[in-house]
Design a protein around this nucleic acid. Structure first.
Lengths: 334, 334
DNA sequence: TTGTATGCGTTATCAT
DNA sequence: ATGATAACGCATACAA
């Protein structure tokens, strides 16, 4: 830029004003001269230097447990669009909860070292909050998650939260299944799963309706088909499967078919996070659709609010998912 | 850091040495004092300042057309792991080719403004190279793509390329279908598709074997089922579908079923980019599996090489995909 | 071995 | 309206 200033015959500060500052109070002639010089020299700002001087990085951090899963890649994509529209840049940090207790702390610090101006943190459980909260003092943060406990996250200064209420959604879905006559359930969870809203809601729904037959499977989706097949062949097989997401749903589906049962005649399946993947199955998977875009939009809005610095009241949003009854659910056949 | 130095009673430079520099020649006592002070003050490097002084950002840019699609989110995830292992940080930039001609140039410049030390660029077509090449002078770059023309990308200084040879893979798959007796084909492409290896390979395979019946569909996957259904119901329906990926494959599948045909008895389907999604369909989708992790590993290796600064010869890698014959393909029934 | 001084590219605060 | 100059937080060559 110093070169540009020289070439245009003006001071550095003038060039800076023209190129990146407020446009006020610079005569058109000078402007054009500077612009022309910049063009000719192929000048590009150095954002690192710029943000060092401005003392704001223009970075927004995103903490997620995975980016391969459709749910998170979709979230990342949408958030990225919205963040970019605000003239900021998204940097994501995948934090693997399985790799030690303080992996999350390290991940956060990496982002903090990059001086992020704001942060969106996916919270698997509201109870993880204490791990993050102390490290995020002074960083405008939006917490994002499906744990219904997040709804009571109010009262934190400079932090906002969004909850996709998967608890209610799942509970409603399971009750629907009970209404259809199902009495033996199986919950298909991921490997090393921690108890989340989906499982809790399933358990609560069954308990409240006096249904006591629930088997829980914890597997990577690759293992699910054979485990489900074995289960279906041995003794009192479940008639209803509640699955973590479409991947696990399809995997369970495969196991059920392999055991010689058909959906929805013998067995019903519900996915707790369904998308086009489940929609294209045959029969198509019933499930709970999460309004991801809506949630991302709200997250971006809250973040903007948080980053504006204006001390507004802490806000906690709840978004209701939608139950999609497609073809994989039906009344139990005697 | 200046605080840390003061607290430890040493000079700033000493603190700097201990915290981030080479560990040589600093007495253990001093080291510990500095480390303790840093610990107590909760010191974190400011990477922006650090990289400004070092004149290297520690950033690697990734240019991709989407992050929502499984192929790219998976690529991003793997690349991110590998890049992070090298002590670098990945920043991605989604560039939507549909939004104007020079969107790609702008996207690149954004990353360049961030002073990325290296770049991984997904090239949809080798012919897009001229758009990027001039802007990437001086930035170690690895080009990544499925266009077979990329294999002849040699001769560029400081740039490397990796090609997943989808042309060969697709051509082989289509020839297999011809061997099975298929004579009427449909290629299911995305909306606003540009001609890519998959389509070219399909056309070439058919032509070389004297098969002249090919219909091409360009649609978002949401539209595919009804369009395929309509096609199946009218006149001479295709007996073989070659689909862009599993999403389009499943969508076509749905249309075929809706029209009252079954797979693979009446119709065969092949996906040009298959994954667990196709594997869990019923019948499971045959297709070409791209060794994404392998490709990402090679990309990371090449990038390391490129960024090492050592002037090695330009390298161009080709990776062969694998044909997975599952259940959606079979001989044509008369 | 440790301290001093300077530079990195930009913005911002002043004078002019 | 424009130009000089001091930060910004850290790394490093060089001096002590």
């Amino acid at each position: 830029m110093i070169d540009v200033a020289e070439a245009a015959g003006v001071a550095r500060s003038t060039a800076s004003y023209v190129l990146n500052g407020a446009d006020e109070s610079i005569p058109e002639v000078t402007r054009q001269r500077v612009l022309k010089a910049a063009e000719e020299l192929g000048y590009r700002v150095n954002r690192i230097a710029q943000h060092m001087a401005r003392r704001r990085s223009g970075l927004v951090g995103l903490i997620i447990p995975s980016i391969r899963e459709p749910f998170f890649s979709s979230l990342t994509a949408t958030l990225n669009e919205l963040i970019q529209d605000q003239g900021l840049r998204l940097v994501f940090q995948v934090v693997d909860f399985e790799k030690g207790r303080d992996a999350s702390a390290l991940a956060l610090q990496e982002l903090i070292e990059w001086q992020v101006d704001g942060m969106v943190v996916h919270l698997e459980h509201a109870s993880d909050l204490p791990k993050f909260q102390p490290l995020l003092q002074g960083t405008p943060t939006v917490y994002f998650g499906i744990d219904s406990a997040m709804r009571e996250l109010g009262g934190l200064p400079n932090s906002y939260s969004i909850c996709i209420d998967l608890y209610s959604g799942t509970r409603y879905a399971v009750e629907k299944l009970i209404d259809m006559g199902h009495r033996r359930f199986c919950f298909v969870d991921r490997m090393f799963a921690r108890n989340d809203s989906r499982r809790e809601a399933t358990i609560d729904a069954l308990r409240s309706r006096g249904v006591h037959s629930l088997v829980t499977l914890e597997s990577d989706h690759e293992e699910v088909p054979q485990r489900v097949e074995a289960m279906m062949k041995s003794g009192e097989a479940p008639t209803a499967f509640v699955c973590l997401n479409d991947i696990h749903g399809l995997a369970a589906f495969r196991g059920i078919r392999n055991a010689g049962f058909s959906v929805p005649e013998h067995v019903s399946i519900v996915s707790c996070d369904t998308s086009w993947i489940g929609a294209y199955a045959d029969p198509s998977l019933s499930g709970i659709a999460l309004p991801l875009r809506e949630a991302a939009v709200e997250a971006a809005n809250l973040l903007k609010l948080a980053m504006s610095g204006e001390e507004t009241e802490t806000r906690s949003l709840t978004i209701e998912p939608q139950l999609m009854l497609r073809q994989s659910t039906g009344p139990v056949q005697c």
